[in-house]
Computed example of a mutant assay.
Amino acid sequence: MAPKPDKAAQLDKPLPEVVDTSPPQSSTVLFIIGSALFLVSFLLPAVHVANSDLRGWVCAQVTLFSIAEPTEMDPLAFGSRLLNVVVLFYCGARLTDSAPRARRFLLYAAFACLILTWVLFSHESIRPLIGHYLWAAGALLITGWEGVDATKEIFLRR
């Protein structure tokens, strides 16, 4: 018959470490602030094109319809067209706390879309206005610390 384990020895064992995969509270605050900025940006003048200012919702409408009916496959324009969709999918995955790998992919896609948008602006002489800056800041803040970690992975690899 095997000896009974000593209860005192069992109590001295450390508890297994629980890994919390939920975003930290500060990241949630950034998500809320970013979402507010992102939504407000659609009401403000976003870009100056051909002697007129376009509001964010007009830009979003134009880009959404141009995704459905592409006339040319310009990679610069494609990036700016896709960012709103990428942010929506990221928000859905973040709110449901699901698909961490897909969220990471969406983060990289959002960064790439922002860069392509700025290159397009430079190439086409489009001048960004306050709505665009809030739109970009909101998109980046929505990613919170998850976006900071992804950025570190990109630029600080050893």
Score class of each variant (00 low, 15 high):
E153L: 12
I115A: 15
V86G: 09
G147V: 02
A68D: 02
L54E: 09
C113P: 05
I154M: 15
H132N: 09
S27D: 14
F121S: 08
W118D: 15
D97A: 12
A109R: 00
S27P: 00
E72V: 09
L88S: 12
S26P: 00
T21A: 13
A110V: 02
F31D: 12
Q25A: 14
S26W: 00
L44K: 00
V40K: 03
Y90I: 03
A68C: 07
Q61F: 08
A93G: 10
G147D: 07
I130F: 02
V19W: 03
A9T: 04
L95A: 13
A99K: 08
S125Q: 09
I115V: 15
L44N: 01
V85E: 11
I126D: 13
D74K: 07
L114W: 00
T63E: 10
E17S: 15
H132T: 03
P70S: 14
L43G: 13
S27E: 12
I33R: 09
A137H: 01
R103W: 03
G92H: 03
F89S: 06
D97R: 10
K13P: 06
F78W: 06
I32S: 13
L39W: 02
I115C: 14
V85A: 15
L39N: 07
A36C: 07
K13R: 11
L95R: 10
R81G: 13
C59L: 12
T28I: 09
R127C: 03
L95V: 09
G34W: 01
A136R: 06
